[in-house]
Design a binder for these strands. Structure first.
Lengths: 109, 109
DNA sequence: TATAAATTCACCCTTATGGGTTAATATAGT
DNA sequence: ACTATATTAACCCATAAGGGTGAATTTATA
């Protein structure tokens, strides 16, 4: 049973797919329509549409409608949380391992 | 069809689950057995075992057997790749958005 | 108004996740 | 040799992902 489903979860899930990372990279060049985003991929427009929904769920992408076109743009804020989680743990863990290596090293007879 | 299945994918998938992040956090205090890791959770030992397998698949956790006990320990290296992907894109995107804000700001009559 | 374009919706299929339970395996200890 | 412990294996179940197709919806345009 899912209790909370944090935004961090959704962000990491969204980033854990190469197609979605490519979509984000495309959007880093500026606003784009769904069809434009889909063009480089040889999967259906529909699949791309679903990937976009997952990116929206994670608040990594925003949509604004202009007539029949849906214009997508980046919203990088969620990356802050993901980045800080990973970065803080990375620092902590590397530190602990280094410390452990020291202990083992100095115990070596 | 999955073509490559990068280590970055596996790392992000592994991190995108709160149970697995909690396991990593537990392991940051040092090597531990599967049973010890499972204790704080009210899910079955078996479920925890599966989570650990996913962490191993991402090379975030290493296992060494000592008799009937399996001792798990952290291997933080994969975090480097994840961190650098996110961090570099975060920087890029925030930059672009700031730039865009500037343009819009200066165009405002 | 009729048609074309841009998207999504509603389905289908397959595979993976995350949970469970009940064996099976391997090792420790008596 | 038994028995208990630590862990995985082999299943079952439900749900979500990731892909597809074809219809529906909305808006632009001839």
């Amino acid at each position: 049973m899912i209790v909370k489903e944090s935004t961090l979860d959704q962000t990491l899930i969204a980033l854990a797919d190469p197609t979605r990372r490519a979509i984000l990279q495309h959007l880093s060049k500026g606003e784009a329509r769904v069809t434009e985003i889909a063009a480089p991929f040889d999967i259906s427009l529909n699949s791309v549409s679903k990937h976009i929904r997952i990116l929206e769920r994670a608040n990594l992408v925003r949509r604004r409608k202009k007539g029949r076109e849906h214009l997508l743009s980046l919203a990088p804020e969620p990356l802050d949380e993901a980045s800080s989680w990973i970065e803080s743990h990375r620092a902590l863990w590397s530190g602990r391992l280094a410390e452990l290596d020291n202990l083992l090293g100095s115990n070596k007879k």
